[in-house]
């Protein structure tokens, strides 16, 4: 109940509705790659079959030119269109299917976006006040609003994570209000045991929210 209310107030970065869109895009781009490769090969083979003594140089030049240009097109399309879509789709599925954790803390963008090998473009996000240094990531494509919300500085946010990727977020004050409205309170993970000890000693034990951390 608490988690649902938290999630409702959060901006979700990933949606299952995107899967068919990405799948269609991947199919389309794969078809373009295959068609380009097929046409290139057909042109080269046609040049071989139509070559005779009179036009041999022309046919050879045409075949080489078609092979180079067609190959460049296929290589570029595959690398920067098709693979991008595949990585995006795989990443989306991982985020939707992965184990979710929730975290509230002060975050800051650390620098320029980077590409995770064989995956997507991301912005690295540092937990500014973490007890232990921790780096999170937000998708560069989906996280524009997130990036603008942070601006150049730090901000306290409530976030949902899957494998250190931010999948949902909201302003921390709004999240804590939602949590208060649901009748549960956040717990500090790092000091959980000491607080519990202290709380027990003062007779005010707090129930732990499942999977929640407050840094």
């Amino acid at each position: 109940m608490h988690n649902k209310r938290m999630n409702d107030s959060m901006r979700q970065l990933y949606s299952a509705e995107e899967i068919p869109v990405l799948e269609a895009r991947e199919k389309r781009r794969r078809a373009v790659c295959l068609a380009a490769a097929g046409v290139t090969l057909a042109v080269c083979v046609a040049c071989c079959l139509l070559a005779n003594t009179a036009n041999m140089s022309l046919m050879e030049g045409t075949a080489i030119g078609a092979s180079i240009l067609g190959g460049w097109f296929v290589l570029y399309t595959r690398k920067f269109r098709l693979l991008d879509t595949r990585h995006e789709l795989a990443h989306l599925r991982r985020m939707l299917d992965g184990d979710k954790a929730e975290l509230t803390g002060e975050v800051q963008l650390t620098g320029e976006r980077l590409r995770i090998k064989n995956s997507i473009l991301v912005y690295p996000v540092r937990l500014a006040d973490a007890v232990r240094p921790r780096l999170l990531y937000v998708s560069a494509v989906r996280g524009e609003e997130f990036r603008k919300a942070l601006g150049g500085g730090k901000k306290r946010l409530a976030m949902q994570l899957v494998s250190n990727f931010i999948t949902a977020w909201s302003e921390a004050e709004a999240a804590e209000c939602a949590a208060a409205g649901a009748g549960t309170k956040a717990e500090t993970a790092a000091g959980a045991s000491s607080r519990n000890t202290e709380a027990e000693s003062t007779g005010a034990a707090r129930p732990a929210g499942a999977g929640r951390e407050d840094v």
Binding site: C44, C48, M56, A63, I64, S67, I68, G71
Partner: peptide
Amino acid sequence: WALISVIFWAWIFTMV
């Protein structure tokens, strides 16, 4: 790729 294309098709056309 350009290098491979030139070498490969030059070889093919030598045979053609």
